[in-house]
């Protein structure tokens, strides 16, 4: 075999092997086999010096050309492997989870709280606040609560050692606002309130409520009904009606208890509404003239309405939570559901 044909044989073998090789490591082995220090090629290169002066340039040229061709096809093959790896459906698993972005959540009671605020803000209300530690005057007297009223008992109301009390509703905020501002007044006052209740499935000594108060010229019972109805529909959905039943509160006259259509059965009767078809929501009424006089408003000129609803209760209704204590255990297994 002439040198020339041997070189051609090596070249042909390399072409065949490289094109049929299966992976990168095989390719590395082939590179060593054909171009490595111990390869036939290297041997031939070493022998060049011993060739005749006529043969030397021809064979040298051929060797160099072949070498660079083998290098070229190895490189091409390598590229083709790398491209397949990157594009391969088998090695690139798009179902693997993305880089996690950990998002927390507001407490569900505060989520509901903010939503209530937003609904009332969109209806032109402002948010008012006041202290939780109140005096008896703002919490009871100014609100026309008689001395004999059971709500004032130690069994019902939490008192501090110095005679002040923890507000039993956010109504004292109404008194504070009316003392400081003139009508038109259109506020809701959400906040934390307290009752002397031992914790059980439906009671806690701490609860959250909001009250709405509107005082202006020409405010009527019909305005009360439409405002409450608008809120209930916006919060619970268009189908949820509300109704008013006569009741007694010292600070409103006429007074009413508010029910809304059971959000679970829509009035057919179920466990949630104890088969009545209605859920009790809270109290409402026209602001008692005595309350208006207490804050020096002309009760002939101005009229107003007020209502109060429980934020915790609304939260429980919305999510179907049956035990109020669940809300305040701060268990991440619970909280993580509200992301």
């Amino acid at each position: 075999m002439t040198l020339k044909s041997e070189i051609e044989n090596i070249l042909n073998q390399a072409r065949k092997d490289i094109s049929s090789c299966k992976n990168l490591s095989d390719l590395e082995n082939l590179k060593v086999k054909f171009l490595g220090r111990k390869s036939r090629f290297s041997e031939l290169l070493k022998r060049i010096g011993k060739l005749s002066s006529e043969e030397r340039p021809i064979i040298g040229k051929l060797l160099n050309k072949s070498k660079s061709e083998i290098e070229n096809i190895i490189e091409k093959r390598r590229n083709s492997f790398e491209n397949t790896v990157n594009n391969s459906e088998h090695t690139f698993d798009i179902t693997m989870p993305g880089r996690p972005i950990e998002i927390g959540a507001k407490h569900p009671v505060f989520q509901v709280w903010e939503e209530i605020e937003d609904i009332f803000i969109s209806m032109g209300f402002e948010i008012a606040e006041g202290p939780e530690i109140e005096n008896e005057y703002n919490n009871f007297d100014a609100l026309n609560t008689p001395e004999w009223h059971p709500a004032r008992n130690l069994q019902d109301t939490l008192y501090l050692k110095n005679g002040m009390l923890l507000r039993t509703h956010t109504s004292p905020v109404q008194i504070r606002v009316m003392k400081n501002f003139k009508p038109p007044i259109k506020i809701i006052s959400p906040g934390r309130c307290y009752r002397n209740d031992k914790p059980d499935a439906s009671h806690l000594p701490v609860f959250h409520q909001f009250e709405a108060l509107v005082v202006d010229v020409g405010i009527t019972f019909a305005d009360l009904k439409s405002t409450l109805d608008s809120f209930v529909k916006r919060f619970f959905g268009e189908k949820i009606r509300s109704r008013f039943r006569p009741h007694f509160f010292p600070f409103t006259e006429p007074s009413a208890e508010i029910d809304m259509l059971c959000i679970n059965c829509h009035g057919k009767g179920c466990k949630l509404c104890k088969n009545s078809g209605w859920l009790e929501m809270g109290g409402a009424g026209m602001v008692d003239p005595a309350v208006l006089e207490n804050v020096k408003f002309d009760s002939e000129k101005y009229t107003g309405f007020a209502f109060g609803l429980g934020i915790d209760r609304i939260t429980m209704l919305r999510y179907g939570i049956s035990d109020i204590r669940t809300l305040f255990k701060n268990d991440l297994r619970f909280l993580k559901q509200f992301v």
């Binding site: 998002i103 927390g104 507001k106 407490h107 809300l327 305040f328």
Partner: peptide, 16 residues
Amino acid sequence: KNHLVKLGFFEVCNLS
């Protein structure tokens, strides 16, 4: 609150 939630915090609510 919104900011902390985005950073992955969960809000808790305890009694007073």
